[in-house]
């Protein structure tokens, strides 16, 4: 049938366009990163060997494999800078995710319990700063946290501190910047589940003699766990690889892993090392996603 045939060609076009694009500009680049992470640093352009030499044919490919090296990965293990960098990234991501939960949950809960008409406005208010530039929001905090900036001026006027404390170039500033920037990503998924939460469940718990704090612990919190998990993943993973916030607000003692990649690449021009750091980071980040997926699948099977 002619009609069915033209339908099929439409179909394959719809799949092929985005598929090929992603293969070429997402998967292939990542494979190149993987390949270069096994190469050796060199002073050349591009600054690594071996370069894949197609013109040499089979010999070129053999040559390529002979010269592969795990040197970059060995470097990762031997230089404590990398290990410390990973640990610091995970630490900051973990603590700031917890802070985001502590700050974001009450906000999400408050919005979900607000009158219907107000809810839409409040959601827009939470999302709106996200539309202004990420960089600008971090920059705003650079203004506030300066040595003689508005925060210190306020603290001095209120006689809370006598000497202006140093905020910038510290982990505290990084935490402030992260919580500020990622707050919508925590609030929105939490709001989405809390808003759907059947109010009569809370009333049923109260009716059955459950005090309010216990109702929250036994009913509200377990039922909001999908949003909780989504919010945690949505924040934790990008925070681990964060570059801009620690670069502008943080100190220079221990860089986060995003900064390390940036420095290896732009500063030291050690592309194989930068690639190896990136590969390890991806492996680190993929693990929680795979675990999450696996559990979601098992849950789907049980239901």
């Amino acid at each position: 049938m002619k009609r069915a045939k033209s339908d099929r060609s439409w179909r394959s076009l719809v799949i092929a366009a985005p598929y090929l694009w992603l293969l070429l500009f997402f998967l292939v680049p990542f494979l190149i990163v993987l390949k270069i992470s096994f190469a050796q640093s060199a002073i050349a352009l591009p600054p690594y060997t071996p370069v894949f030499d197609f013109s040499a044919g089979w010999r070129g490919i053999e040559n390529f494999f002979e010269n592969l090296s795990v040197g970059s990965y060995r470097l990762l293990g031997s230089d404590p800078l990398y290990l410390l960098s990973y640990v610091k990234s995970l630490e900051i991501a973990a603590f700031s995710t917890l802070m985001l939960l502590a700050v974001g949950y009450p906000i999400a809960y408050g919005i979900a319990r607000a009158p219907r008409r107000l809810q839409a406005v409040l959601v827009v208010l939470v999302v709106l700063p996200f539309w202004t530039s990420f960089l600008i929001r971090i920059y705003a905090w650079m203004n506030i946290l300066q040595r003689d900036g508005p925060l210190n001026q306020l603290l001095m006027t209120l006689h809370i501190v006598r000497q202006p404390p140093v905020w910038l170039a510290s982990d505290t500033a990084i935490y402030i910047g992260i919580v500020y920037s990622y707050l919508p990503f925590m609030v929105l998924p939490l709001y989405a589940v809390l808003e759907k939460l059947d109010q009569s469940l809370i009333e049923a718990a109260a009716d059955l003699g459950c005090p309010r704090w216990k109702t929250f612990w036994l009913v509200t919190l377990p039922l909001s766990s999908p949003g909780l998990l989504a919010g945690v993943l949505l924040c934790f993973i990008p925070i681990v690889g964060e570059f801009v916030i620690p670069d502008l607000l943080g100190g220079s003692r221990t860089p986060m892993i995003g900064q390390t990649i940036w420095m290896e690449f732009f500063g030291n021009k050690d592309w194989p090392a930068a690639s190896a750091v990136a590969v390890v980071l991806v492996c680190l980040l993929v693990t929680p996603i795979v675990i999450f997926q696996h559990q979601a699948m098992r849950k789907a099977e049980r239901d």
Binding site: V240, I261, L285
Partner: peptide
């Protein structure tokens, strides 16, 4: 969820390659 640093790095390496 891919950190931007990695996306950027891999893109650049593709364009160089």
């Amino acid at each position: 969820v891919m950190p931007e640093v990695i996306t950027g790095l891999s893109m650049l390496l593709l364009f160089v390659a």
